[in-house]
Design a protein around this nucleic acid. Structure first.
Length: 568
RNA sequence: GGCGGGGUAGCUCAGUUGGUGAGAGCGCAGGAUUCAUAACCCUGAGGUCGGCGGUUCAAAUCCGCCCCCCGCUACCA
């Protein structure tokens, strides 16, 4: 039994997440966590809301709430949405909680002790009316190159050039529109990443198992050379720049930069979990306290890779303390909404709560994972979604369960028939399933999700093919024992399908177990020996005819949703 | 602009240490079947592998140039 620590990129606090966010980190991590639990491993799956930073403060202001209230409310909403989607977090924490404050301040101190922190004075744009410093992108003005009037301080959307907010003509605050903006000096702490270049490069080099996307992004940053990075901000909401309750002189009104504290919350959330469950968090994170044998897996969208392969490792390795670092890093591309962007700020696409108003979680989980954006961005369309759900879930899996349970009830009654023995057809089925189940498990182990679920679908198809060959509805006319044996095999198959499918469609898998009144937790143990699993029921076990597992999506529904979600 | 990822059948995607007639699912056409959610099963049609040029006996795969989509570019997260 292995110990596996899994974290998915922390969803930002400003509103409920859309399907793109879901499939970009939390859902694949959940599928992997569920798979490894079923295999009997000790899994700890940790996530949390990422609550600090300028967007959170602005969103709170827009909502007419204090940032504290806003974050508490939004955290609860996201937590609830995650549960409704079946995300099996062992803990869903908050980056604003006490353990993260303590740990963030601890890391800053440790880095300073190693000579990796320096105070520097910056000049930044300050908005007098907003009473705050403005990050580059919150300063707008006229582009000095193309005269576009709504250029952002970091980049002009019209001509695409990178800008410095100081160069904008007629600058104003994007928050209030006020033109009373000026340059002011402000002091910040810098993390001297340049000193860590070689250590990070060597660490990345030894990570042979990272996928192409992950590794090339890391190497690109290293190739350009790590630059020192400011890790504090002039904001109210965040981790105070303090240590053991003492504010750092000159930093009384500053907090750590959200990107400094957010990854530390992986550890912080583990401590939150430990505190509320009477567990030990250090055995998961400190290699001197038992974390040496932990396999640590991170899952995230491609935009996050640099922070996890370079920035966060700077924090961890720079401390020179025995922290656990990431082993496997799964990165995904974007899911797009009809080829365009899902957008939280513009409310474009389908969001987690809306999705569940329409259909149960498993419909979404299957489609998203079977078509996960692994090699490239993938387009989500309602039409494709409906087609995948109808074909894979309703026709192939759902119909298999329906047809055999109904047939059995009609001809043998509501219990598994005991007569007859398995023959050539069953032998061939078992051989195919053993091959496919092994391939499937291998792909899940590698987190190659599309390939895994192509294989799982083929496993379901094999069930239908078997029925076609065994044809108990024909056999029963002259050989009742033969028919009974194949019905028994097919009913056993339902349980095997449920176990294999549970990582991705847990709610449905449990319905399948319920047909036979099985306890999901024990019945879902991974069927390493398919042949043995197909002999679980010997005959005489009662079952209950199930409801249809998946309703088909009708064209009218697709049309209605197209209207509701403004599909192009 | 720089760096990285991607461009393969109508759609969504596999396939690149160069080499057995380029694959899967969906969709489409035909067949078989009737246990089942007009479901399942079988067969078939369909592609100048983004473009041009090069290396090679041989290129989707290697090299060069170009076009298109996406990400990052360190003060959004």
């Amino acid at each position: 039994m292995a110990r596996i620590l899994i974290t998915s990129a922390l969803p930002y606090i400003n509103g409920i997440k859309h399907l793109g966010n879901l499939v970009g980190s939390m859902l694949p991590a959940d599928v992997y966590a569920r798979f490894q639990r079923q295999r009997g491993h000790e899994v700890l799956y940790i996530c949390a809301t990422d609550e600090h930073g300028t967007p959170a403060e602005l969103a709170a202001r827009a909502a007419g709430q204090t940032v504290r209230e806003y974050c508490r409310e939004q955290h609860d909403i996201q937590k609830q949405a995650g549960e409704a989607f079946g995300l099996s977090f062992d803990h869903f924490g908050r980056s604003s909680n006490a353990p993260n404050h303590r740990l963030t301040q601890h890391f800053a101190k440790a880095l300073e002790n190693k000579g990796l922190i320096e105070e520097r004075t910056d000049r930044q744009v300050y908005s007098v009316d907003d009473m705050r410093f403005l990050p580059d992108r919150y300063v707008e003005g006229t582009c000095p190159h193309c005269d576009y009037e709504k250029a952002r301080g970091d980049q002009c959307d019209n001509c695409g050039r990178l800008l410095d907010p100081v160069d904008l003509k007629n600058p104003y605050s994007a928050i209030s529109g006020s033109h009373k903006v000026e340059l002011r000096e402000t002091k910040h702490l810098y993390l001297l990443q340049s000193k860590l270049q070689d250590r990070i490069a060597a660490w990345v080099e030894e990570k042979s198992g990272w996928p192409l996307l992950t590794k090339s992004i890391a190497q690109k940053w290293l190739k350009e050379g790590l630059r020192d990075r400011s890790i504090t901000r002039d904001l109210q909401w965040g981790v105070p720049v303090a240590y053991e309750g003492e504010a750092r002189p000159g930093f009384e009104n500053k907090v750590f930069y959200v990107w400094f504290d957010a990854p530390i919350e992986y550890i912080g959330a583990t401590e939150e979990w430990a505190l509320s469950n009477g567990q030990d968090w250090e055995s998961w994170w400190r290699t001197d306290k038992g974390a040496d044998d932990v396999k640590y897996v991170q899952v995230m969208g491609k935009d996050n890779v640099a922070f996890h392969t370079v920035s966060f490792p700077c924090t961890i390795l720079g401390s020179e303390e025995p922290w656990k670092t990431v082993d496997a890093l799964k990165s995904l591309n974007w899911l797009t909404w009809y080829g365009g962007k899902f957008s939280t700020s513009e409310q474009r696409g389908i969001f987690m709560d809306q999705a569940l108003e329409i259909l149960p979680a498993d419909y979404w989980r299957w489609h998203l994972m079977a078509n996960a954006p692994e090699s490239d961005d993938a387009s989500f369309t309602l039409e494709h979604f409906a087609s995948v759900v109808n074909k894979d879930l309703a026709d192939v899996l759902g119909n298999f369960v329906n047809r055999i349970t109904r047939f059995c009830k009609a001809r043998f009654g509501e219990e598994v028939p005991a007569e007859g023995a398995y023959g050539e057809a069953e032998k061939a089925l078992i051989a195919e399933l053993e091959t496919r189940a092994a391939a499937y498990a291998g792909y899940l182990e590698e987190m190659e999700f599309r390939k895994a679920f192509t294989e799982l679908r083929a496993i379901w198809v094999a069930g239908n093919e078997y029925l076609q060959v065994a044809a108990p509805w024909t056999a029963i006319k002259e050989d009742r024992e033969r028919a009974a044996a194949s019905v028994r095999c097919a009913l056993n198959l339902i349980v095997v399908f449920a176990a294999l499918s549970r990582p991705v469609i847990p709610f449905t898998a449990d319905k399948m177990f319920a047909i036979f009144d099985l306890d999901p937790e024990t019945a879902a143990r991974w069927p390493d020996d398919v042949g043995a699993a197909l002999s679980r029921f010997k005959g005489g076990e009662a079952f209950a005819l199930p409801e249809v597992l998946f309703a088909k999506i009708e064209d009218e529904q697709v049309e209605e949703w197209r209207q509701r979600f403004k599909a192009q």
